[in-house]
Design a protein around this nucleic acid. Structure first.
Lengths: 155, 155
DNA sequence: ATTATTATGTTGAATGTTCAAACAATTAAC
DNA sequence: GTTAATTGTTTGAACATTCAACATAATAAT
């Protein structure tokens, strides 16, 4: 700390907690993104879209629903899907019940892609996040993060 | 889950933990970034640089040391500092002991900026991360995140 | 001493994200 | 039944981050 600083700050414990969380978030996110880019030439944004569609009924979902589910901005999703469309992983179709709507449909190529990519990604999730923690710590982490989400979610 | 999926996946508990951590990371990061952008017209990258320099001896540090401390890539830091230089927050000087080195120095304008910005940012950190958690949870979170960092740090 | 190698930083191009604006279709008002 | 307001989605510009290539200085090799 500089001698001239009168800035209101956090206690040492609070600061250490915040700093650790912040760095750990970035470390984990970076590691996962790196793995996906290296092994499958896609970012975690596109991966999440593939997972969501592969879990969706009939392998399809409306853009808005998808954006809500993934907590992405509409434009972020739109740009991502456009890229994935050129890769042949997704097709866009008009929504029959609502003329404004667009439906993103996973193609068979897209399904193959996610099925080939998921195992390596899961391994990396285990390696970086789950394996270093005991079962107790995993439960604590889940509880803590759900608290953070619950207190701030608009829903 | 789709019926045709044979993808290796996580147990329900593991998946819930991972998903909660992932979403909480994004939520927190987004909230803090938003607050900084709204109140001080800077992103968390620039804020972190200002904090690091304001805490540094003589309000200055070598680019490489700064990058290591913040875990930023050299180019990320270089771009950020260039922007902040045009804002008048930072000056670059040659390093006397090593001709390759560059030293980033916080200007008085930069110091004023961080001193005006920090209180609001600290409030937001408390609101989003610390206040929702009990003291026990804070200690757990710190412990967990330091475990994740420790297991993966190259140092 | 000269040359090769390594270390420090910067730059420019490519990519991804956000923001504001636009567009089209639906719903509400009157 | 027109007109107005709202909703769903896309688009393009601005900005940040990464990656690869570059420049320059320090160190090592001979």
């Amino acid at each position: 700390m500089a001698a001239t600083t009168e800035v209101q700050w956090l206690t040492d414990d609070e600061q250490a907690t915040w700093r650790a969380f912040n760095l750990a978030s970035r470390l984990v996110d970076g590691a996962l993104d790196h793995q996906l880019m290296r092994d499958a030439d896609m970012g975690h944004t596109q991966y999440a879209v593939l997972v969501a569609l592969s879990e969706a009924v009939d392998h399809r979902a409306r853009m808005g629903d998808l954006a809500d589910l993934l907590q992405y901005s509409p434009s972020r999703l739109s740009h991502a899907v456009r890229k994935m469309e050129t890769n042949g992983w997704i097709e866009r179709r008009k929504c029959p019940s609502d003329g404004r709507g667009q439906i993103a449909v996973l193609t068979s190529v897209g399904r193959q892609t996610i099925e080939q990519t998921a195992p390596g990604h899961v391994d990396e999730v285990r390696r970086v996040v789950l394996s270093p923690l005991t079962a107790t710590q995993q439960a604590q982490l889940r509880n803590i993060c759900e608290t953070l989400l619950g207190g701030n979610q608009t829903t």
